[in-house]
């Protein structure tokens, strides 16, 4: 039931807990956040106390507060020492977060931000795409994974707070980010740079597996899609879905929208905004514009209910 609990937390526990580090690349960020918050609070209290003294304190205290000595110590020496120490400590603490090229045997995934979803490509050692997916990333626990972050249109920002800090996705650039989850589960993510219209509905899920379930997931992903749900497959072809969507092993090879080869095994629909089941598939296909206004998929309300159901059944069968 772990996955079920994770799904619920992804969908209804929004936004994901920011101060709960799930791996070594989030811990420094959380630690730094607490240090800044607590340190800043202490400084604020001292400043307010000094203000109170300046307003209502005894004349002798007020004189001392206004003297050169107080200015040099409180205004120059203290911030100089504290901020320099903080800078050195912060750089050392977060130095390891600067990802360079892939380490030996490290899993690599290219994630491309698009308005308003995430294109996911699992790469082999030579950088060739092995598995195509969208809006979801599966990783093994306890191992670092190198993400190559890019954008197909405007600036997005990849942010799975439990696993790492934010990293911008900038057109024409590839930014590297390393993530790692130390316990199995589903970790919610969110585009963190305003990218237009339904930016707030551009969610993401990272699913961290134990080694056994990860191997099972990988094996399942490389299998060809099942030949069932024929009527839905026929409708997919005749309704024009293939103009934008790819389904491996079929004629459908559109590239504008998310790859649907394994859409039935995804946890969410519409980039992290809806659970994925027969009913939500039908609702999304019929009227995605009401659910995620402005997204690039038109609604297909003209389809008869039984056709919608057949299409949804086909999508569901693509595990």
């Amino acid at each position: 039931m772990r996955v079920e609990a994770g799904l619920t937390s992804v969908l209804s526990g929004w936004p994901p807990p920011v101060l709960d580090a799930g791996g070594p690349f989030a811990q420094p960020v959380v630690l730094l956040t607490w240090a800044l918050l607590i340190g800043g609070t202490i400084v604020l209290i001292v400043v307010l106390a000094a203000l109170a003294v300046a307003l209502w304190g005894k004349p002798s205290l007020r004189r001392r507060l206004g003297g050169d000595r107080a200015i040099w110590i409180g205004g120059v020496a203290f911030p100089g020492v504290v901020l320099t120490a903080l800078l050195i400590w912060g750089l050392r603490l977060t130095g390891d977060l600067q990802a360079t090229g892939p380490r030996a045997d490290e899993m690599r995934v290219r994630i491309t931000g698009e308005m308003w979803w995430w294109r996911v490509a699992y790469l082999d050692a030579a950088g060739r795409t092995v598995i195509r997916d969208a809006n979801e990333l599966h990783i093994p626990v306890g191992k670092s994974v190198l993400l190559e972050l890019a954008s197909a249109d405007v600036i997005h920002s990849f942010w799975v707070p439990n696993l790492a800090g934010k990293m911008d996705m900038i057109p024409g650039r590839t930014n590297l980010l390393r993530i790692q989850a130390d316990r199995p589960g589903t970790y919610g993510g969110q585009c963190a740079e305003y990218c237009g219209g339904p930016h707030a509905l551009m969610g993401f899920a990272v699913v961290a597996h134990t080694p056994e379930t990860f191997a099972r997931w990988q094996a399942g992903r490389r299998a060809p899609p099942p030949p069932e749900a024929q009527r839905g497959a026929e409708l997919f072809r005749t309704s024009g879905c293939a103009a934008c969507h790819t389904i491996a092993g079929t004629e459908a090879n559109g590239l504008a929208g998310p790859d649907l080869s394994h859409v039935g095994s995804r946890r969410t629909l519409g980039a992290g905004i809806l659970p994925n089941n027969r009913g939500t598939l039908m609702g999304w296909i019929a009227d995605s514009q009401t659910l995620k206004p402005g997204n690039r998929m038109p609604g297909y309300k003209q389809l008869a209910p039984e056709d919608l159901a057949a299409l949804a059944a086909y999508m569901e069968s693509l595990k």
């Binding site: 799904l7 619920t8 969908l11 209804s12 629909l269 905004i273 809806l274 659970p275 089941n277 009913g279 939500t280 039908m282 609702g283 999304w284 019929a286 009227d287 009401t290 659910l291 995620k292 609604g299 309300k301």
Partner: peptide, 25 residues
């Protein structure tokens, strides 16, 4: 309410207090 959210009833139905508010049903 939790079950309705988990199942995504809002994908097709307007249900006060549940997001989204689909209109295909």
């Amino acid at each position: 309410r939790v079950a309705a959210e988990r199942l995504g009833c809002g994908a097709c139905h307007v249900i006060p207090g549940i997001w989204p508010a689909g209109t295909s049903g």
